[in-house]
């Protein structure tokens, strides 16, 4: 069927069977159809070939793209290389970030641990071992020194060196396992008033569908007002996982977390944030966090909606080298939808 649009004069408006007239207004003397093919510039004459060329390129690209994914053997080889390269204190990451679920399946939870995946930041890691594909790299390490790169099948294994690694002396999250912590509910939002100790419980975890918020961990402190404190993984404002103490403030009271044997360094370094679906509407009350050691207030910080995963650091030079108590008080004027969490370490 090589018909073409009929000339306008062929069209009769009362006909039910003829095509409509596409306007043909090219002056006759310039009409390319009337020109001998030899009179047309060669590039114009063969310009139509762009179309089949695009079609063929699209097909070739499709074939290449649908056969380019790493095989199980590729992943096995990558796993072996990472096992040989990464030390326990190193960070291991994958790029691009969308490949992360598959990488966790193929490399395993022992390599891509929750601690590595949901890190507060990368400052504590002396090196980062990045398994990358498709030429993608994480911007997080753009300023780090590349110590080594190695091609591993379709992957590139890059070892980055942290230009200023920080040695963590004590990670507050580790106190949950060592049981050197207690949680209290103080009846006043200003951190005073009667306090009641919250019970440590090992129950089933609680979770739900989208909108539930962060999972409530099985191992947790439960207060008489229903408040909980425990380690969860919270999506920050950028949907990045953060492993931290889930400690929603009740609004009319203060949650006080006491760590009994903290090894202090020169600084108390930490972050706090609110689960994305509780923060992104920017309608929640600010959350206050206060760190004190005995009567000394080490630092007081506020998290406001929109801050995202927010860092803080307190100077603890006076306490460096000592072991003592650290109390953390969390409060908000209104506890509605405050799926707040924090983490901190000494360094």
């Amino acid at each position: 069927m090589t018909d073409s649009a009929p000339a306008p004069e062929e069209s009769t408006p009362d006909s039910d069977s003829k095509p409509a007239a596409a306007p043909v207004v090219v002056p006759e003397e310039k009409s390319p159809e009337k020109q001998p093919s030899s009179a047309i510039a060669p590039w114009k004459r063969w310009a139509f070939a762009i179309v089949p060329a695009v079609g063929v390129i699209e097909l070739v690209l499709h074939v290449a793209q649908t056969h380019g994914a790493p095989s199980d053997a590729d992943w096995e080889r990558a796993k072996l290389e990472i096992s040989l390269t990464a030390k326990p204190e190193d960070l291991v990451v994958v790029a691009p970030d969308w490949v992360d679920p598959l990488a966790r399946e193929k490399l395993g939870g022992d390599i891509l641990t929750i601690e590595r995946e949901a890190r507060p930041d990368a400052t504590r890691f002396p090196r980062a071992i990045e398994l990358s594909m498709r030429g993608k790299h994480l911007v997080e390490f753009a300023q780090w020194k590349v110590a080594q790169t190695k091609d591993v099948g379709p992957f590139v294994l890059t070892t980055f060196e942290n230009p200023a690694p920080m040695k963590v002396i004590d990670d507050l999250l580790s106190h949950m396992a060592s049981r050197k912590m207690k949680v209290f509910r103080l009846d006043r939002p200003d951190g005073y008033g009667w306090g009641s100790e919250c019970q440590r419980q090992l129950l089933g975890s609680e979770s739900g569908n989208i909108g539930f918020g962060p999972a409530i961990p099985a191992d947790r402190f439960t207060c008489k007002g229903g408040e909980i404190v425990g380690i969860s993984v919270v999506p920050d404002l950028d949907y990045v996982p953060r492993r931290c103490f889930l400690a929603p403030p009740p609004g009319n009271a203060t949650v006080r977390v006491e760590f009994s044997e903290v090894h202090f360094g020169k600084a108390l370094h930490g972050h706090h944030g609110i689960s994305v679906h509780a923060e992104r509407d920017l309608t929640g009350a600010p959350v206050n966090i206060l760190f004190r050691s005995g009567p000394i207030v080490l630092g007081k910080y506020v998290h406001r909606d929109g801050d995202g995963w927010k860092g803080f650091e307190a100077d603890t030079s006076d306490l460096a080298g000592t072991v003592g108590e650290l109390a953390v008080e969390i409060s908000a004027t209104n506890g509605a939808n405050r799926q707040y969490c924090f983490e901190a370490d000494t360094r």
């Binding site: 999972a215 996982p241 679906h277």
Partner: peptide
């Protein structure tokens, strides 16, 4: 959010 819930 659901992914991280599942981790816990």
């Amino acid at each position: 959010e659901v992914d991280y819930q599942s981790w816990v």
